[in-house]
């Protein structure tokens, strides 16, 4: 497991969560752990020609969409690439959403990626961004329900690279 570099005082959220659960007498939350190296592919095109799909777990939806439930919701929402920030909403059970509800760009960088496209840095943004509410405690449901859908939609949207934004 990669350790933080010297001088970086990163908060150990696994340790913080374990301490909080221990104090309450709960079983420890089992964070995903993979010793096996990940697949590692290089995009086929340059960034200036690449199509980017944004996938964000901060509970972002549009005004008029059905909101997320706060318990193992493995559905996702699709946010059209031209959606204005004013139409974006956020709901989540686990993090402080004060900033995200005021400026959705802090958890959903659609506006930034659109600007990178306008500036010629990035080729294009996928027609839809894919959003869901993270904090899904069931890794089985994540593997069987949400992950296959996100993989399929990434390919259907023709993305060359996926920008993943957890909270």
């Amino acid at each position: 497991m990669q350790m933080p570099p010297d001088g970086l005082d990163a908060v150990d959220y696994i340790g913080v969560t374990k301490a909080a659960y221990d104090a309450l007498g709960y079983d420890s939350y089992r964070w995903a752990h993979n010793d096996e190296p990940p697949a590692f592919v290089t995009p086929n095109v340059d960034l200036a020609d690449a199509k980017v799909v944004i996938i964000a777990s901060g509970g972002v939806y549009r005004h008029g969409d059905i909101g997320f439930t706060h318990k193992d919701d493995t559905t996702h929402r699709e946010i059209p690439a031209d959606t204005a920030d004013a139409a974006l909403r956020v709901t989540h059970f686990a993090y402080d959403q004060t900033a995200a509800q005021e400026d959705p760009s802090v958890v959903f960088p659609l506006q930034a990626v659109r600007r990178l496209v306008d500036d010629g840095i990035v080729g294009s943004v996928a027609d839809m961004a894919l959003t869901f509410m993270g904090g899904i405690y069931s890794q089985r449901r994540l593997r069987e329900q949400l992950i296959p859908t996100l993989v399929r939609r990434t390919h259907e949207l023709g993305a060359d690279v996926a920008l993943l934004v957890p909270v």
Partner: peptide, 9 residues
């Protein structure tokens, strides 16, 4: 999100 990243890659 790490599991999703690994699966997409």
């Amino acid at each position: 999100m790490g599991l999703i990243a690994r699966a997409i890659e």
